[in-house]
């Protein structure tokens, strides 16, 4: 099981947070109430999704102090531990798309299917479109289609037809394009990529230990960030890395590990 360490930790975090949210509504627990869009820790500390806040501002909302403070806290937090750590450690949709990626590998779909090409920068275009549509429609546009909040609210308040959207994401990732949603389209992932540009925590490769087995590239949801594998010993610098630690899990040669960048040490 040693090659599942981070995977198991991530599932515990993801599911644990959903349990806390569910308990807050169902039983009145105070630890973490609200949803992923905006939460309250112990009924006092606000946490808010910076992208939702950005869309609301684009839509022309004048917002209360709590939600602004909450967005700043989240921005700073992910700015330090890696922006997309949200995607792999918190976001519930990650479980859906990871499942699709797992089935793809088992069914050898990656080896057989015709290639569909979509730029991985599509997520950044999605951010721009979301903000423009928010401004035109007069409300946060991504928040009415976001599978992330629909999943999160579904666990707390009941799914309804929203479950169909999650099935659609699963099928998209399974049969249309590998890592289509999380790796190409999701604008929230894009925002978190931008937040993590200067993160202190990231994966580091030691090419001296690397045997070029390429297991890491097989499992990586953002495979382009591992462009140094077997070539250079360096940190993963591309902000699209989700810090999921799956590459570290599957590496049998101790060639990958988490690394904390001490301030001032830019190597």
């Amino acid at each position: 099981m040693s090659n599942m360490k981070y995977l198991i930790l991530r599932r515990i975090t993801q599911i644990g947070l959903l349990v806390l949210y569910f308990g807050a509504h169902a039983y009145g627990w105070k630890m973490l109430s609200g949803t992923i869009s905006s939460s309250s820790v112990l009924g006092t500390i606000p946490l808010s999704d910076p992208f939702a806040v950005l869309q609301m501002l684009a839509a022309g909302a004048s917002l209360g102090l709590d939600v602004i403070v909450g967005a700043i806290i989240i921005t700073l937090f992910y700015g330090i531990i890696g922006g997309r750590a949200f995607c792999s450690w918190v976001c519930p949709v990650n479980m859906v798309t990871d499942a699709a990626a797992w089935v793809r590998r088992k069914m050898l779909i990656d080896k057989i299917e015709r290639k569909v090409w979509v730029t991985r920068n599509a997520r950044y275009y999605m951010i721009a479109i979301a903000l423009v549509v928010s401004a035109v429609a007069g409300f946060a546009a991504f928040e009415i289609v976001s599978p992330i909040t629909i999943f999160n609210r579904g666990v707390i308040f009941g799914f309804g037809a929203g479950a169909g959207l999650l099935v659609a994401i699963f099928l998209l990732d399974l049969f249309v394009l590998k890592n289509a949603w999380c790796g190409h389209l999701c604008p929230l992932g894009g925002v978190h990529s931008l937040l993590g540009k200067y993160a202190l925590l990231s994966v580091k490769h030691n090419s001296d230990n690397c045997t070029l087995c390429m297991k890491c590239k097989d499992v990586c949801p953002e495979v382009q960030v591992l462009n140094m594998i077997g070539k250079r010993s360096e940190r993963v610098v591309q902000p699209e890395c989700t810090n999921c630690g799956r590459c570290i899990d599957v590496c049998d040669d101790d060639a990958l590990g988490f690394d904390i960048l001490a301030l001032g040490n830019k190597k």
């Binding site: 509504h25 609200g34 309250s40």
Partner: peptide, 20 residues
């Protein structure tokens, strides 16, 4: 309604407070 729709972040804290 128009202002409500642009200002509500859909967090459900009101519904949670109502229930509990």
């Amino acid at each position: 309604e128009a202002d409500f729709l642009r200002t509500c972040i859909k967090c459900g804290l009101c519904a949670e407070a109502c229930r509990n």
